[in-house]
Amino acid sequence: MTFLQQLPIVFGALNVGFLQTLKLFGITLVGALPLGLIIAFGSMSRFRPLSIVTRFFVWIIRGTPLMIQLLIIFYFPSMALGQPIWGSGENGRFAASAAAFIINYACYFSEIYRGGIQSIPVGQLEAGQVLGMTRGQIFVRIMLLQVIKRIVPPVSNEIITLVKDTALARIIALQEIIWAGTAFLKGSQGISGQVWPLFFTALYYLVFSGALTLLFGWVEKRLDYFRG
């Protein structure tokens, strides 16, 4: 097979793999961004047992490799219960990957949120209080936008890392783009021993990260109208 004949086959396979990459990326954000806020509130709780347990959990998750967490989440339930809980095939692997990524990224986001919330001067809270606002109103109407403005850069950083971290799901054989590229090394659809498809995957990541960088730049600009 000539290179030109290989090209459409490789692109087709990489596209399918990248779709899986995007799905994992998307569901991780949808789950981890809000879950991170809940964890942040837990770690800031004035109820000591809750904050201690939450911080301990965050320490465990941030202190161990995501790759190991993927393996534990995928294999441990079936070892402990004697039967798999994630379902079979690609769907099961995706569910386990999503769970691992959401938990892992929520912990990182929670620390960014906590830093953002705690960096808002206490005077803002007190100004809301003396104006008769409820805790919820103070958080939503006063704190939130100021916190968002402060955390856009670190959250962007984390999200761009996530784009590439999705490749770790390959350890439990999730068929994302790196897995799709590796297939042509081992042999697939009549192509084998080829490493260039794997090199090619970098372009997908690069273009997608570029688009995200533009998006975050736009968000930062939108929040430029005030200071503080």
Binding site: Q146, R227, G228
Partner: peptide, 16 residues
């Protein structure tokens, strides 16, 4: 709190 108003030393206006 609504019986009282408070003007702070550092204003504490809402920047946004």
């Amino acid at each position: 709190r609504l019986h009282f108003g408070l003007v702070f030393q550092n204003f504490n206006l809402f920047p946004q």
